[in-house]
């Protein structure tokens, strides 16, 4: 079973952001989605996660239609995501940012937690153990009690990915996880994501950083003007002149794509906090 897009389409008024895309994503693999700015990559992620509605076509995970569900129901169907612009719960601690992800499974016991303290502490210990495990995996254990919004940018990126992974999702959607990270952090991220491979998980990474995409992905989809331009292994993508044309307008080397990604990284400043 897989994630399947069937003639998926998204229109914003006159703008066709996603133009009848049909694709399928197998579990156990890491799928890369690349393409120039405005190609529709984020739109694809946002529709899958339920942040945007679908104009037409369908999205199905393991045979179950996702596009008819509400966003929280999609999340509860095993879909977890990160955002192109980090969206953490800023005034909650790093640990709480992960702990709250257990809401769907634990909310039924809320009154028991309120009225029966031993049950509450047992649940909390249980939740926090799981959270600390994933925090340690991302080397964030030292920041567990720090407010998420006060962490350095790179740590915030990691924390957001940790939050997506804490409930062991079936489908993991990462929208530009390396945006704004320096070389060292990107390498660290690549290693962590590689270590998180699991035979049951479908991972989709939207990314401009070609080093990361080429190192990590088993299968790459190239988007251009909302259409699926090319699909293949990293080697096939590197060899494709279509891809180079899409990115740069000329048939140049993949190295130029890298350079474009570098520029973009420089443009992305440090994330401004929404709250003071």
């Amino acid at each position: 079973m897989t994630l399947v897009f069937d003639r998926l389409r998204k229109e914003y008024g006159q703008v066709v952001a996603i133009d009848d895309v049909t694709a399928s994503f197998a579990p156990g693999l890491i799928h890369g989605v690349i393409g120039p700015n405005g190609a529709g990559k984020s739109t694809l992620i946002n529709m899958t996660a339920g942040s945007y509605t679908v104009s037409s076509g369908s999205i199905a995970l393991d045979g179950k239609r996702l596009d008819k569900l509400k966003k929280y129901q999609i999340a509860n169907s095993g879909v977890a995501r990160t955002y192109q612009n980090i969206r953490l719960f800023d005034q909650m601690t790093a640990l709480e940012n992960l702990e709250v992800c257990f809401y769907p499974s634990d909310v039924g016991g809320t009154w028991k937690e309120v009225l029966w303290p031993p049950y509450a502490s047992a649940r909390r210990v249980h939740r926090r153990e799981k959270c600390m495990e994933i925090l340690r995996f991302f080397d964030l254990q030292g920041h567990a009690d720090a407010e998420a919004g006060s962490l350095p940018y790179g740590r915030q990126r990691m924390l957001e990915i940790a939050r997506a992974l804490v409930c062991n999702p079936r489908l993991l959607l990462l929208d530009e996880p390396a945006a704004g990270l320096n070389h060292h952090e990107t390498a660290e991220l690549t290693a962590k994501l590689a270590a998180q491979r699991s035979p049951d998980r479908i991972t989709i990474i939207v990314e401009h950083d070609m080093d990361l995409v080429m190192a990590l992905c088993d299968n790459i989809i190239v988007m251009h003007h909302g259409k699926l331009l090319f699909q293949g292994t990293p080697a096939e993508v590197q060899a494709s002149t279509d891809v180079q044309l899409a990115y740069l307008g000329t048939a140049n080397d993949i190295d130029d794509i890298r350079a474009a990604a570098q520029d973009r990284r420089a443009q992305l400043g440090i994330r401004t906090r929404r709250r003071s």
Binding site: K70, A75, A80, F89, E96, V100, T110, R127
Partner: peptide, 23 residues
Amino acid sequence: RSILGKAWAAIREDQDAARGIGI
């Protein structure tokens, strides 16, 4: 301090992201 309270805080911080984690 309960899990519901954490969800309230998440809604306060970012309602849409709260939905995104299944709340």
